[in-house]
Amino acid sequence: MIASDLLDVPVHDEAGAHLGWVVDLRFVLDGAPDTFLARARLHALVVSPRTRTSFMGFERSSVRHPWPVAPILRWWHRGTFLVHWPDVARVPDPDAGAGPEDTAAIVLRAEFTAYEPGL
């Protein structure tokens, strides 16, 4: 699996309701030391309910400038949330090609928790 298999993919809840798109993947370097850096564990998916991508991550940072770019982008990406990787119930098969939209979506578990996406 490569990162592009997860990025830009629609995200549905268990009932099939559309929640957004994966705009980024969050990793945490807390794995076993791997020579120089710790292993980078896939911690969460950053999901935006309104846009398929993110521009420079203004919605995840405390940067407020340049005005009005930062406020506009922050408003555009409002509602962005973080879903931890263990809350992912199903990932689409990257080799299946373009299929029905329901099978080409990441499905979350019923009791998933959404978190603030701030870095």
Partner: peptide, 29 residues
């Protein structure tokens, strides 16, 4: 099966717990 969609739906969000290691976002970093 046709998916159900009624427009963007904001879910309630909880504060993210502090992580034990350095945090990297794939596209950002």
């Amino acid at each position: 099966m046709r998916r159900t969609r009624t427009g963007p739906r904001d879910v309630s969000r909880e504060p993210e717990p502090r992580q034990p290691g350095r945090v990297l976002d794939a596209r950002l970093h």
